[in-house]
Amino acid sequence: MRKMSILIICITCIVLGYFTLALAKKAFTAREDLPAAADEQDMKYRLVLITQELDTPFWDKAGIAAKEQARKDGASLEVWGSYGKNQEDFLKKLEIAIQSKVDGIIVQGLDTPEFKDLVKVKAAFYGIPIITVANDVPKAESLRKTYVGSDQYLAGELIAEQLIDDMGHEGKVILMGDKHKEYYLQQRLNGIHEVLKDYPGIRTVYAETTDVREEIIASTQNMLNQNPDTDSFIAIKANIAEAMIQEIGRRSQVEPYYIYSFDDGPDSLSLLKQGKLDGIIEQSPEKMGSLSAELILKWLKDEEVPLKSDGYLTDIRILKAMEEQ
């Protein structure tokens, strides 16, 4: 009896010991350490990519590619920006970037005096190089180092040619532009006009609107009312397309219209997939991201000075609804 109880206590001891050890091992193993303190001597180049439209497929691609390129070249790059073309926020981010004395700024160009003022005066004051990406602001006005992105003029031409291919040489086109005539939009418009001027059978109507949804709807209604015989729409600014198509759809079928736009809006691709857009100009956001990062680093390291002032152009191509389906 006594031996039995001793044995039981012994076994209990061993079992308890095992569990205790296991638990102690778990409890005292070094837990996840705090993030390591950064090396103070580590003077990596700090780059910022600032866009007006965060979280759109276009800028996500550009951002990822730029980050990847920066990582490869041993620099750190962050993507900042505003949502939905909030200019005030965008400019604030740009100013913070300048005041934070980053080593280089890659920015989506914005053709406003405030932007130009910031880029020309502040950035130059702190000696921060700026590269515009996707949307350009002429060098003379912004003192940017270079431009990386599509040739917007060529994009306009391409879209016009596609229109002619689809619609033929006769028809009426409504061009929906932005009231605020940004440089890159102007380029696109110029490209379209350049092609269409050779086709007298095609009449163009130019309409201007702002980014506000109601206004887009209103101007679309207005256009449809004034031009019931229209055959085609081109949304020169990609953001307009969605509201515009919605309004058209409310009136009649969307399919009979030839509707074209660009890929730098938040819904461009999904609209194309739904077949509501007949074609979009597809740019190369990845290329823009990586190339811009590469160029600014090259400039910082004095490997390529000066950069081409009229820009490094990336590929564009037309993406048709048929191809997507």
């Binding site: 705090l34 993030p35 390591a36 303190a37 950064a38 103070e40 580590d42 700090r46 750190s76 962050e78 913070i96 970037a97 005041q99 934070s100 004395k101 980053v102």
Partner: peptide, 22 residues
Amino acid sequence: VLYLRNSENEFALTNYINLIDS
């Protein structure tokens, strides 16, 4: 604040310090 730098906030903190400089 300089000592608070770590691998995860290095970028932001450098900006932060520079902002104070500015």
